[in-house]
Simulated assay, not measured.
Amino acid sequence: MERSITMVALFAALIAVLGLFPSFMLITGVPISAQSLGVMLCGAVLGPRKGALAVLLFLLLVALGLPLLAGGRGGLGAFVGPTAGFLYGWPVAAFITGWVAQSWRGVSLTLSAAAGALIGGVGVLYAFGAAGMMLVIGLSLPQAVAALAAFIPGDIIKAVIAGVITGAIYRARPGFVLTR
Rank of each mutant, 00 (worst) to 15 (best):
R3N: 13
I5P: 03
M7T: 02
A9P: 09
L10E: 06
F11Y: 12
F11L: 08
A13I: 06
I15W: 14
A16V: 08
G19L: 04
L20M: 15
F21A: 14
F21C: 02
P22E: 05
F24N: 01
L26N: 00
I27D: 13
G29V: 01
V30D: 04
V30L: 12
P31I: 00
S33W: 03
Q35Y: 07
L37Y: 13
L37N: 09
V45F: 08
L46G: 13
P48W: 12
K50Y: 14
L53Q: 13
A54M: 11
A54W: 13
A54L: 10
A54S: 15
V55S: 09
L56P: 09
A63S: 11
L64Y: 10
L64W: 10
L64E: 05
G65C: 05
P67A: 04
L69I: 01
A70M: 03
G72C: 03
G77N: 06
V80G: 15
V80W: 14
G81S: 15
G85A: 08
L87Q: 11
Y88T: 05
V92F: 15
V92P: 05
A93Q: 08
F95A: 14
I96G: 07
G98Y: 09
W99A: 14
Q102Y: 09
L111T: 08
L111Y: 10
A114W: 03
A117L: 00
A117R: 08
L125P: 05
L125K: 05
A127L: 14
F128G: 01
A131S: 11
M134D: 04
M134Q: 14
L141D: 06
P142Y: 13
A144N: 10
V145I: 13
P153R: 01
P153N: 04
A159F: 01
V160S: 02
I161R: 08
G163L: 01
V164P: 01
I169L: 15
R173V: 08
P174G: 07
P174S: 11
F176R: 11
F176H: 06
F176T: 06
V177C: 13
L178Y: 15
R180T: 07
R180A: 06
